[in-house]
């Protein structure tokens, strides 16, 4: 009795969906999945924060752990803050403070030319390549 009720319910469930429903569902699934692929190709997700001073690598930190560090530039200390997988320059001794105004980023870079401090977010691909290089080299 119960099983037949459930079966009838299932049949009705499928009958309740019209052809247009199914087409719409299929289209939405295809669009969102292809969107995922497009986004992955277009914007690789960053995993590491690299801080360079005067062209030399000063710090390399994971983007996933929150931190605040003082980076010694040529004019003084630049405070770089990592929080919630995002990076910003909190304080800088530079005159125009463009780097501070750029705010939080989760990909790309912040470059403070006056203090020669550059903050990059590196993708996972670069990291993988480096570890492989380290093993073979």
């Amino acid at each position: 009795m119960k099983l037949s009720e459930i079966r009838r319910g299932e049949k009705k469930l499928i009958e309740g969906m019209t052809l247009a429903d199914m087409l719409l569902l299929a289209a939405l699934v295809i669009i969102s999945v292809s969107g995922f692929i497009f986004i992955k190709e277009a914007f690789p997700q960053g995993t590491d924060v690299k801080i360079e001073v005067n062209g030399r690598l000063a710090y390399k930190l994971p983007l996933s752990s929150d931190a605040a560090i003082a980076v010694k530039g040529i004019n003084g200390d630049t405070i770089v803050e990592i929080k919630n997988r995002k990076v910003r320059i909190k304080e800088s001794p530079c005159p125009n403070k463009i780097c501070v105004h750029q705010g939080w980023i989760d990909r790309g870079a912040i470059i403070c030319l006056p203090n020669r401090v550059m903050v990059f977010i590196e993708g996972s691909e670069g990291k993988e390549n480096k570890t492989i290089d380290a093993i073979t080299g």
Binding site: L13, L28, V29, F38, A42
Partner: peptide, 26 residues
């Protein structure tokens, strides 16, 4: 960019929850 990155995720989640809500609503 930030909006585009979350769009496919929201679209997919919206599709899943939309189907479930539609079945319950039906």
């Amino acid at each position: 960019k930030a909006v585009l990155i979350v769009t496919p995720l929201l679209l997919l989640l919206g599709t899943i929850t939309g189907v479930v809500n539609g079945i319950i609503g039906g």
